[in-house]
Every structure is written in C-alpha cells, then in structure tokens.
Amino acid sequence: MQEISPMFYFKKFSPYFEYLRVAFLTMLAYRIQYFIGVINYLIHVAVYYFIYKALYTGGGNINNYSLTDMATYIAIGWISKSLYLNYLDHDIADEVKSGKMAIDLIKPVDYQVMNYARGLGQSAFRLLFFMPPVLVATFVVFPVHPPSSIYNLFLFFLSTFLSLLIYLGINFFMGLISIYTISIEGILYPKNMMIELFSGLMVPIDWFPLWFQHVSSLLPFKYIAFVPLNLYLGRIDVSVAYSALLVQLLWVIILFAAGRILWLMCRKKIVIHGG
C-alpha cells in the first residue's frame, strides 16, 4: 500500500519544482534579454496605442469601447501576454531535432509535466521581474484605468493563470507536431500569428464580423486574451464569468489530454529514430 499524504505528493512533485527553479534561474542569467524584453513590450503597446488614438480622433465610442478602454485593453493585454508567453514549442522542436530529447527521456520524470513545469518557471520569472517595470511604465505613459473592482482583478488573475495553462498546452502540442514537419518556422510562425489574431490581442473579438466571432468561440484562443481582459474591464457579467472560467478550465484539460496522446504517439517514433 502506498502512503497517501501531503508529504507523498510533495516528494512526488519535487523534481518538477526543480525544473521550475532551473527555468527561472536560466531566465535570470540572460540579462540583456530581460531589458530588451521590457522595451519590446512598451513598443508593442505604443504602436497599438497610437493607432487606436488616431482611430478615435473623432471621439466617442467604437463598438462600445472608449479610447481609455482600448488603451487599457492593449496595455493589460500585453502585460498578461508577458505572463503566459513561453517558447516551449521552439524548445521542444529544437530538442527533438538536435537529439537532446534523449537526455530527457532517460530521466525518471514525466516529459509533459516537466515541460509544463519549465513553462511555469519562465512565467514565475516574468511575474516577479518583468511585469512590475512594464506595469509601472505603462501606467505612467498611457492612460490606463485600474480594474473595475478588486473582485474583477481576482477573476482576471485566475483567468490569466488558466490562459497560461492553455498556452502551455498549445505550445507543447505544436512543439511535438513540428517533429513531423521539415520547417519548424513554417508551422510555429503562422501559429503565433493565429493566436495573436484569434486571442483578440490585436483587435477585440467583438469588433470582428459575426462569422469570425462564431469561429473564434469554437477555438481555445480567445480564452487566452479576450476573456481575461474583459474580466479586468468588467465587461463580462459576474454570472457569466464563472461559466467563462469553466470553459477555460475545460480547454486546459482538453489540450493537456491532446498533448498527452500526441506525446505517446511521438514517443514511439522517437524511439525508432534512436533519439
């Protein structure tokens, strides 16, 4: 009989915490990347801010968003992107192509959970070191308004955490998919573009024509940015908010399962190739 206690689970997961910690430390080691990253986000927010500002020269509301709504939408959108973003897809594809994956396979850890842990480590880094300066800079430079309530802020964080898991799921899956293709870039680049479009990061989903809105509600992407942002802005009713979170959770589970199945399939292929 196996002992089931908190200690047991702690021990079972402690190697994954190690992966998380190492990912965190690796991020710290690249300081140039860090400073560049902060600037990158400000540039993105600035470009979109000025476009929207020009768009609103006539004043008033567009599709029920005011200019400050839009400024907030973009600024918070890019800040939360800094939390869920990771390059797991590239890392996995690289590992497969270079044969480094063999090293991971001889370790007594679950490959998928390990990769999720890595991604969480990167996000933890960004949460602690990346987000604060970007947040401060954005609030100083752009007319961003605070969350509509503390409760909304809480929902936003919960939802952003779930977006992180969705994003991890997508990236794990896509990283493995690229095993089957010649050009990794040819798959991953359009994927990133699709996520940017369908998550509503460039333009809110409800600005798009109806057919697009229908398509996007069948896909997991809008739960990465559009839904958390609307929770922040208080544009989603509290009663609906829970169901939105529930759907998010559902996508987390579906993507994890899909990743697991693909992983089991790939593993056979990798073993045949000899790693």
Binding site: I51, Y52, L55, Y56, G58, I62, N63, Y189, P190, M193, M194, E196, L197, M202, V203, W207, F208, P209
Partner: peptide, 18 residues
C-alpha cells in the same frame, strides 16, 4: 501570406467602424 493577410485583416477590422 498568413502574416500579411492577418495583419491587414486586423487593420481592416479596426477601420470598419471609422
């Protein structure tokens, strides 16, 4: 095509109202 297509589609959508 996907890159330019998506970007232009987004710009087009933005400018739809105004």
């Amino acid at each position: 095509i996907s890159y330019h297509g998506i970007t232009l589609f987004a710009i087009d959508t933005m400018l739809r109202g105004y």
